[in-house]
Structure formats: C-alpha cells, structure tokens
Design a protein around this nucleic acid. Structure first.
Ligand SMILES: [Zn+2]
Length: 463
DNA sequence: TATGCCGGGAG
DNA sequence: CTCCCGGCATA
C-alpha cells in the first residue's frame, strides 16, 4: 500500500479502530476528526473487544464503560459464534488485535458501522487496504514518532491530519514504509512493523541498532505491557472526540453519558446503550502540574482546541498496567497466544524481507456482522523480531452465500494422464486437529477460516 | 464416506 | 491477487 493509497483510504473513515479479538462488537473509542492535527498520534478510534474472561477480570476498576459496552453488545448480538469463541477460547490471547475500519455513513459515526449499510458499496479488496491503513494509523497513533522537524505543531494544526500523517512516515516505492522512531522520553511504544506477506512491510527504521534493550519502549503496543508507573502528575481524562466537541471529563462514564446525551440524543436515564453505540472518546492524560511543561514531553496537544491537555495515544502501553483508568488494554493475565492465532516466532530477526509464502489472507478473527478485520499476530517486538502479519477479510454471517455453483464446466478437466507428480515420499500424515470444516460444518461455512473456505491448509487450527 | 488441502484455474 | 473447486491422499 502506498502512501497515497493510504491517505485516500482513510480519508473517508471518520473513525478507524483497533479491535481486540476481532469479534466485532467492540467499542470504538475515538474517531478521526477531520481536522485533527496529528503529531505523534492520531485520535483514531480504538475498538477493543476483549474476551469474556478479560472483561471479568477488568470489570472492577478499569474501564467501566468499556466493559459495559462490550457486555451490552455481546448480549445484543448474541452471536453464537461469538459466544462460542469465547467459550472455546477462554484464554484468548490478548495479543490478538484486529483493526477495524469502516467508513461511516449515516448517523454520525454510530450505527453506520454496521457493514450492512455498506453492502454493495464497499469494493472488494478494500478491506485489505482498510486494514493496512488502520494498522498504520494505529501504529502511528501509538508511537511517539517524531515528525519531521519541519513540521511544527502549528503546522500540523493547519495542515490537517492527513498531511501530518504523511509527514510522519515515509514510504519507499518498494512498498516499505518506515518512520523514524527515534523518539525520546516517552515510553510509549514504537510502532510495530506491519508486514503483509506481499512484501509490504512497515517497519521502524531500526534506530541504529537492534537490541538496544528496551524493556521500556520496545514493547509492542499490543503486547503485554510491562508494568510501569506513570507520572503521578498525570491524570487520565476522557476527551470527547465528536466533531467540534472538546469535552473532557474525568471519568469514562461521564464522557459516555455526555456522548450519549449530547451527541446521541439519548436520555441519560434510560439504560445503557442499545449496544450499537460507539463512544468516541479517547483517554488522554493531562499533566496536572505543568500543563506546558515545555516540549520536553512530546505529547501532542489537543487539536482544535486550546486544550493544553496533552493527548496520549489511547493505546499507550504505559498506561496500561495498574492504573484504574487504564484502557481496557489490560494485559490479560498471561498472554498466552490463543489457538486462533498461532504465532511463530521462529523466523529470523530483521524481517525486513517479509517472509511470505503463498499468502492468503490469514485467519482473521471472527467478526460480528460484517466487518473487515485484521489482526496482527502477537507480540512481536518490533525491534528485530519477525514482523507481525496482518490480514483481513470480510466476514458475513448468517448469510446465504454458499451455493453459488457456477456451472463452470467448460473445460473437460480430465486430468491429463496420471502425470501428476508422483507424490514424493513426503507422505503427509494428516494432522490431528479438527479443522474449520469439521468444527463448524458445511452449514456455517462462513465461519471457516479463509484457507478452509478455499480448500487450502487451515490457518486457524494448525497442527 | 468424510476430511484436508494441493494444484489449477477463472476473473 | 482473491476465490473456487477437481481430485486424491487420508482417516
Ligand atoms: Zn480453517
């Protein structure tokens, strides 16, 4: 994906989010204001969808709002698939993130996320790019990358996020993207390299070396953050990201209420959401004592407004351990990779050259309704580890789409002679694991992983 | 017979 | 690429 493609793509996305588990039904936080100066991060939407167990785990303190949203959503969309997954993968890895980016239409960012509204509109193949874009955005949003020295804050503000974005990274014609991550201070994580088997990869310019221990900053943004304390002077606030609204409240529930009443025109008292709500707000950190502590901390400041409040990327790792208000980003207990996303960390470092094999949209997480999602294979530490791969696909559930039996019998397929390669001695002892076909059955083919649907080697349940 | 999936297409 | 499927090795 090249630079312009990305920009083009995201242009129409009021919000692009990251969604955990890719099961849809996540909650979107934040949106992409049309004119949001991006410097260091983008207020892109972040949608998290944590596995049930996680929710319980975080239930208490963390993001009450999130929990609620997730719950209500889950309830509504009683997608057995969803449930199924939850039960089947109690240990769903917390590293399974899915990016979800849907152009929103209709009601200001709400409801519109329903892919249904896009039927027939979204060009096929769009999903891929969409994901790529979202990935990049997410990455950017969480990486304290330093913008070109030439671009100043004001610059950004006036140029708009798009330009800013473009300024924040560079892409070579080869398809490799990279940006300078040589940042400083802020612990936020550097962006992870994203690689598409196609040879496109997003990687940080390995700032001078590779192993420079990091303990601190090397954690992949989606990886279990390392426990770290945040400055006591910082206070977590929630900022509404709705158009022209700069409301900042101290509690997620507060901002949620605000959004609900002010932007969604709902009445506060009524129960929670109808499950379809997307609360666009982002968690920000405000330095209480010195609001303008010099640029020492590159935290970007709120855009449109004067709000001197430094805005932190929603996903910053550092904000995740132990703070009550930390983003649901909670590191699930152990980050055991779930069975859905086997991670193979056995590749070579410096995945500059993405290892790509035949390539096929790798197993996407399930998604509710129809959303295109992609996820990154886990933890990969951006430094020298193999780059994460992304993949996406549009899932449609409960749709009829099976029978399309094209009478494609024009060619007498007959095999020409038994010339077929004499299967080499490599006998393939059929794997043990039950694959999608067996697990979901023909009726629910929609649930199969892409590979299975294409009668290729299953990617979801490997042996 | 049912699965899993390679190797070939088609668009 | 993306998506399908014939057909064959397996279970
Ligand atoms: Zn499969």
């Amino acid at each position: 994906m090249d630079h312009n493609t990305l920009l083009d793509l995201i242009r129409d996305y009021p919000s692009i989010g990251v969604e955990r588990e890719g099961m849809g039904g996540g909650v979107a936080l934040g949106r992409k204001p049309d004119s949001f100066p991006l410097s260091g991060h983008l207020p892109i939407g972040v949608t998290y969808l944590l596995p049930e167990n996680t929710l319980n785990e975080t239930e208490t303190k963390p993001n009450e709002c999130m929990r609620q949203c997730n719950e209500s959503r889950q309830r509504r969309l009683k997608k057995q698939r969803f449930i199924h997954t939850l039960t089947e993968q109690p240990e769903a890895t917390p590293n399974q993130f899915a990016l979800v980016g849907l152009p929103e239409r209709g009601r200001e960012g709400v409801k519109a996320r329903n892919m249904r509204e896009y039927e027939g509109v979204r060009p096929s193949g769009h999903a891929d790019k969409e994901v790529m874009a979202a990935t990049v955005l997410t990455t950017l949003s969480t990486s304290p990358l330093v913008l070109n020295p030439s671009s100043s804050a004001s610059d950004l503000a006036s140029k708009g996020w798009k330009e800013s974005l473009s300024a924040s990274y560079s892409s070579s014609t080869s398809g490799n993207w990279s940006w300078d991550a040589s940042d400083q201070s802020v612990p936020s994580t550097p962006s992870p390299p994203l690689s598409n088997d196609a040879g496109k990869s997003f990687l940080l310019s390995s700032q001078s070396d590779d192993n420079n221990e990091d303990t601190e900053s090397t954690h992949f943004l989606f990886e279990d953050p390392i426990p770290r304390k945040r400055k006591n002077s910082m206070k977590v606030m929630f900022k509404c990201l709705w158009k022209n609204c700069e409301k900042v409240l101290s509690t997620s529930s507060g901002i949620q209420r605000h959004i609900r009443t002010v932007h969604l025109g709902r009445n506060g008292d009524s129960d929670y959401s109808d499950g379809e709500e997307d609360f666009y707000y982002s968690e920000i950190e405000v330095n209480m004592d010195t609001l303008s502590e010099g640029l020492s901390n590159l935290t970007p400041t709120s855009p449109t407004t004067s709000g001197p409040a430094p805005v932190f990327p929603v996903l910053t790792c550092d904000a995740s351990r132990s703070e009550p208000a930390r983003m649901i980003h909670t590191p699930l207990s152990q980050s055991a990779p779930s069975a859905l996303c086997h991670i193979r960390t056995d590749h070579a470092y410096q995945a500059t050259t993405p290892v790509s094999i035949p390539s096929m949209p790798s197993e996407p997480p399930h998604s509710e309704d129809r959303i295109s999602v992609s996820w990154q294979s886990p933890p990969v530490i951006y430094k020298g580890l193999p780059g994460p791969m992304t993949q996406i696909r549009t899932v449609s559930i409960g749709e009829k789409r099976q029978p399309v039996n094209h009478t494609t019998v024009s060619k007498a397929h007959t095999n020409n002679t038994s010339a077929s390669k004499a299967t080499t001695g490599t006998r393939k002892p059929r794997g043990e694991a039950k694959k999608c076909r067996k697990v979901y059955g023909m009726e629910k083919r929609d649930l199969w992983c892409t590979a299975c649907r294409w009668k290729k080697a299953c990617q979801r349940f490997t042996d």
